[in-house]
Structures are given as C-alpha cells and as structure tokens.
Computed example of a mutant assay.
Amino acid sequence: MTVKLGPNRYGKAETRLVRVVRDGTTHHIKDINVSSALSGDMEEVHRTGSNAAVLPTDTQKNLVYAFARKHGVEEIEDFALLLARHYVSAYPSIHHARVEIEEYAWNRIPGRSRHSFVRDGGEVRTCVVHHDGDGRTTVVSGLTDLVVLNSTGSEFHGYIVDEYTTLRPTTDRILATAVTARWRHAGDGERPPYARVRECLLDAFAQTHSLSLQQTLYAMGERVLTTWPQVCEVRFALPNKHHFLVDLSPFGLDNENEVFYAADRPYGLIEGSVLREDAPDAGFAWE
C-alpha cells in the first residue's frame, strides 16, 4: 500500500491587534483579527519531523505586530496583501499564503472627547419585571455587551505589591470593557428613556480620568442616579478587556503606546452597585 501526504497548511489563527493612531489629541482605532495559513514544501516536516522549511506560527504572530508598527494598518485588504506577499517572497519553502482579517469597527462617542469610542455591533437591551399578588412590582432596565474603550486617560498604580506581582504600574493605558448594567426604577410609574440612561453611562465613561475600573464604575452609576431621580440603584458587571503593550524591541522597533495585544482571557471582572441611601428594598433578587 502506498501512502502519500495530501493537501495541508499551517498558520497562526486569530492574532488580535489593536492599533492606536494618534493625530495630536485626536485618536483613531484599528481593531482587527488576523489569521494566516501557509502551504508549500511541507513533505519532510510531516514525514520526518524536520522543521527546516517551517516558519513558526509564533513568528507569523510577531510579523502582524511588527508590520502594523512599520507600515500602519489602513485598508485591511492592503494589510493582508502585504503579509501574504511577504510570506511567499521572503521564505522559499512557502508557496501559498492565506491571510484572513476581521475588523471590528469603533465609533467615536459623539461630543465627548477625541479618544473615547463605542464599538459597532450594538449592545443588547434588557428588562426584568417582578410582580406578585401583594401588588409589589419591580421594574429593572438594562443592557449587556456595551463595548467601550478609552485609548488614554486611564492609569493603574499604587496597588498591593508582593513577591507574586509582575504587573507594572502605568500612568497611561487603554481602558476597555463590555458593560453590563441594570438599573432599578423607584416605582412602576414614569421611567427615564433607555437612550438617555445609556447616554449617561457613555458620558461618565468618556469624561472620567480613571485610576481604576472601580472608580469608573462608581462614576457611571453616580451619573445615572444624579441625572434621573426615577432610578434608585444601578448594578454593573465590567470585565476588564486588557490591552497589553507588545514588546517590539526584539525586532529593533520602538512602541510608544501604539501596538497592543488585546487579550480575551483571563480578565479582571469588576462588579458593584451604586444606589441612593433611601433606595427602597427591591423585594426580589432582581437580577
């Protein structure tokens, strides 16, 4: 019986890249997901384990970050072409390169600042109503997955440090989260419009110079409560969508807060509620 190697390819899937372009005080966000798949002279690696023709997938990841710093990222088609052509021209063993890019759009939060964004795709609007035979009613409005990002205006330092601490303090970081917020109304009568409460959340996020995500959480809840007396409590779950600065020094490149790795896990999860001192008891586990 004769056995032969069939079609094959290898690559690096879903390299997340967030690039911040700083045009003075106006920032622009490019948020993409890059996957590469290469094929060519792969007979020996499959038959004998010789890696002489293999470009490590880790190198493919590094190329994405380095090329983003060297060439920028404008049209994703052009960036994909740049990478694919490099793979085939620079490495004789690679005969075919497939590069796939997904782009996640961000819109500037209007009228707030030049470095605050809300991601396209939209959040999910929610509500929960409790009512019992004694006439008790609780109305809770909310939203989930409202993804927001500040490309500056966020710090994190002064925390507990011990022998297990590796996180470095920073006075300038990306702050991003996917907001889940639920606000309980003081009664079942007049309620503030959903869009206006959402606006309060965005305003507070954009206008708070944050020293911690906890501080931002409180500012968002406080803004809703001070603007709308019909709301008596706001509860939040804010996953910290970490963005880590990529070390480009091995490639002879600097990186002044421009090229980041967007990590999806593990992530910090910040939860809390902000309520009026005289807020009535919900009477229900209202989540």
Rank of each mutant, 00 (worst) to 15 (best):
E222L: 08
N255D: 02
H242M: 04
L217K: 05
Q215G: 15
L225M: 08
F244S: 07
V231C: 12
T226D: 14
F244K: 00
L245I: 12
N255L: 04
E233D: 11
V231R: 13
P250S: 00
W228A: 06
N255H: 00
N255Q: 03
G252M: 03
P250H: 02
N257H: 12
L253T: 05
L225S: 04
N240L: 11
Q214A: 08
K241P: 01
L245M: 10
L213A: 09
Y218C: 11
L253G: 02
T227L: 03
T227G: 03
L225C: 13
P229G: 05
G252F: 07
H242E: 12
N257Y: 01
P239Y: 08
L213D: 13
V259D: 10
H243V: 03
A237F: 00
V259H: 08
L248M: 02
E258I: 01
H243R: 08
H243Y: 05
E233Q: 13
N257D: 10
Q230F: 08
D254I: 05
L238M: 12
N257G: 03
P250Y: 02
G221E: 11
T226Q: 14
Q215N: 15
H243S: 00
F251Q: 09
T227N: 03
T216M: 13
A219P: 00
L217T: 08
V259K: 06
V246W: 01
G252T: 13
K241H: 08
N257S: 10
V224I: 14
S249H: 03
S249N: 09
E222K: 09
L238S: 00
Q215Y: 08
K241Y: 07
Q215R: 15
E256C: 06
P229D: 09
N255R: 02
N240C: 02
Q230H: 12
N240F: 01
M220W: 07
V231D: 12
Q215K: 14
F251I: 02
S249G: 05
Q230R: 11
W228E: 12
G221N: 07
K241F: 11
N255V: 04
M220H: 07
F251D: 04
V231Y: 09
D254V: 02
R235I: 11
E233H: 05
N255C: 03
L213G: 05
P250R: 02
N240H: 14
R223F: 08
T226A: 10
Y218I: 15
V246M: 09
T216A: 10
M220A: 09
V231S: 03
P239F: 06
F236W: 02
Q215C: 14
G221L: 05
L253V: 07
Q230G: 13
V259W: 06
V224F: 11
V259S: 01
